[in-house]
Design a protein around this nucleic acid. Structure first.
Length: 554
RNA sequence: GCGCGAUUAGCUCAGCUGGAUAGAGCGUUGGCCUCCGGAGCCAAAGGUCACAAGUUCGAAUCUUGUAUCGCGCGCCA
């Protein structure tokens, strides 16, 4: 709708230029917005105020010329007014608003999808937790966010790949192996002083016991190094499988699991470093190899190869991201914990150094989750290994509530997650509010069928029967859905969908309480059924983007 | 110390590319079931958008400074 108005305004502008009412001859970057107050119409544009300076005329004068040129707009609006400092307000006809219903029915499941990303490949990498322990609640937020961002981008027309980067190289795997090995020896009766820098969680003991049951005592015979490697491989594999199962329970699936170790095995890390050297972006100092990231906006230069010859984590990240783009992605999205925000400049710098536009890498920072129970903070400490796992939360509050809660705030603001609240089946809990709206409409459909009334087919309804303000408001809300999805995709902000859903559900509940859909008059009932099923379609489409189910009964 | 982010109703938070009289949920108070599912609805109260300058037709939004809070600042991953 917005776009149609923009076209009309542009056309009016051109005609003013050619007819000589206006002189500057160029079209400013104006906006068409939904005003905050209904008295200001359905849409409002600031174009006259933007032109005023160049035209050397009062904004309202410019607006008058434009309004004269706008004409009747093919019946799109029934009134145009100039208001305030020079806004032009449009009052659209109900008939044109209810046209959106046919659009929803025509497009069905794809209503809301757009073409802004058509022909572009994007990769979304998220979760990417180390395979050294189970996923915790923070990973859950990253998983929900990454998956929803990927879905939203898909809806915007991008070809999307979901990828999980497995940090299976470096000394953390060694630490995992050592932790397991020591617990194993402990189980066999040895008195072990378990080191601080080993993984403390109980899952380590469980895994060690598992190995003991499988392999018996014979691993004690192995040389320590070999034993540790054995434990690392076995434990890493088991933990990875566990992570995959947890994600599956959460409804998150990946197209690709990408191993860091594989980068080393194929010589990609070496190749990456060689390329940077070739481009003259590196130098040696005190026996280490540095990358000149500070030439591209970073605070300081960063080490790629340490003086002991070992490569840094950053070096494999260089190789990884270089390789991502070689795979042909036009856009790469990384979802990180916000505590890594200090790494953003060096990643962008690295891309710039490689001759790639830093904008082609978007990094979404996901803030901490503050876990509460009845308003009291649940104690968590990674060091002691006492943390609440994602699986525990899914089992306790359910997948839908869990996902919805993770997406209720913008990802870069901290999130309070109250376990008791998420479980409550009451009006305090926002998850069910939206799902309930969907279930209610399904219930209406069941009742309608009992009365021999089917949800009407495309256009088989008289929209003039829809005369209530609430009905018009619902149609307007449905019209706003596609641009909401587009905005969520452009800004990588899935929480916009959540807010939209709450708004749409509220409008529906309000309507439902005020007026019966199945009324005395069959034609009116059919029209309302048509409207309400459009609401259902959009609720379902939006919930689907978030990975939350749209139940028919609750 | 340097850098990044935050600061909006009692609480938790939205607020689009700078737009007109700043919004929602929860909580509080008072109403609504003979009625398609009350997991719902209606109404009221509640604000110096941290503070101070600046930019302009117009600032919660942009700039600078101040305060408070959080995070990050390794040849760790």
């Amino acid at each position: 709708m917005k776009e149609r108005l923009q076209q009309h305004i542009r056309r009016a502008l051109q005609s003013c230029f050619s007819q000589g009412q206006l002189h500057s001859g160029h079209c400013p970057d104006f906006t068409v917005e939904v005003p905050a107050h209904v008295e200001h119409g359905d849409f409002s544009t600031n174009v006259a105020m933007l032109l005023a300076r160049e035209e050397k005329q009062a904004p309202r004068k410019v607006a008058e010329a434009l309004v004269a040129a706008l004409g009747q707009g093919d019946g799109l609006w029934n009134r145009v007014e100039i208001a305030g400092p020079g806004f032009i307000n449009f009052f659209l006809t109900p008939r044109c608003w209810f046209g959106v219903l046919d659009e929803v029915v025509r497009q069905g499941r794809s209503y809301g999808c757009g073409q802004q990303g058509a022909g572009r490949k994007v990769q979304v990498e998220f979760v990417s937790a180390n395979p050294t322990g189970p996923l915790h609640i923070g990973h859950g937020r990253g998983a929900a966010t990454g998956d929803a961002v990927a879905s939203v981008l898909q809806a915007a027309g991008y070809q999307v790949q979901r990828e999980y980067y497995i940090n299976d190289a470096g000394n953390q795997m060694d630490t995992l192996g050592r932790s397991l090995y020591l617990r194993y020896r402990e189980l066999l009766g040895e008195d072990i002083a378990f080191p601080q820098d080993c993984y403390q969680g109980v899952y380590i003991k469980d895994l060690a016991r598992e190995v003991l049951e499988r392999d018996g005592e014979r691993l004690l015979e192995l040389p320590e190094k070999q034993a540790i490697r054995h434990f690392a491989e076995y434990g890493g594999g088991r933990i990875r499988n566990g992570i995959e199962e947890d994600l599956q329970a959460f409804g998150v699936g990946f197209d690709n699991w990408y191993s860091e170790q594989g980068l080393y095995d194929r010589g990609e890390v070496e190749a990456g470093i060689a390329l940077l050297k070739e481009r003259g972006l590196t130098y040696e100092q005190e026996g280490a190899l540095w990358l000149r990231t500070s030439d591209y906006g970073d605070d300081k230069d960063r080490v790629l190869v340490r003086s002991n010859g070992a490569t840094t984590y950053f070096a494999s990240d260089v190789a990884y991201h270089k390789e991502k783009f070689e795979r042909g992605f036009d856009l790469v999205v990384d979802v990180w914990g916000a505590d890594h925000h200090g790494y953003v400049p060096r990643m962008k710098a690295m891309l710039a150094g490689l001759g790639r536009n830093p904008e082609d890498l978007q990094i979404i920072l996901v803030q901490l989750v503050n876990l509460l129970r009845d308003g009291q903070q649940v104690a968590m400490s990674t060091r002691s290994g006492e943390f609440v796992t994602l699986r525990e939360v899914i089992d306790e509050v359910g997948r839908d509530a869990c996902r919805f809660f993770f997406l209720m705030r913008r990802s870069d603001s901290q999130l309070d997650f109250d376990l008791e609240l998420a479980k409550k089946q009451s009006n305090e809990n926002p998850v069910y509010y939206v799902q309930y709206a969907h279930a209610r409409i399904c219930s209406i459909n069941r009742n309608a069928r009992d009365q021999g009334l089917q949800p009407p087919e495309l256009g088989q309804v008289d929209v003039d029967r829809l005369t209530l303000d609430e009905e018009l408001a619902l149609a307007k809300a449905l019209d706003r859905y596609p641009e909401t999805v587009a905005g969520a995709a452009r800004h990588f902000e899935p929480h916009r969908i959540v807010f939209y859903l709450q708004d749409l559900a509220a409008r529906f509940h309000s309507y439902y309480n005020k007026e019966r859909v199945l009324s005395e008059d069959p034609e009116t009932s059919r029209a309302r059924l048509y409207l309400v099923n459009c609401v259902r379609t959009v609720l379902q489409n939006a919930l689907l983007l978030l990975g939350v189910s749209a139940p028919e009964t609750m």
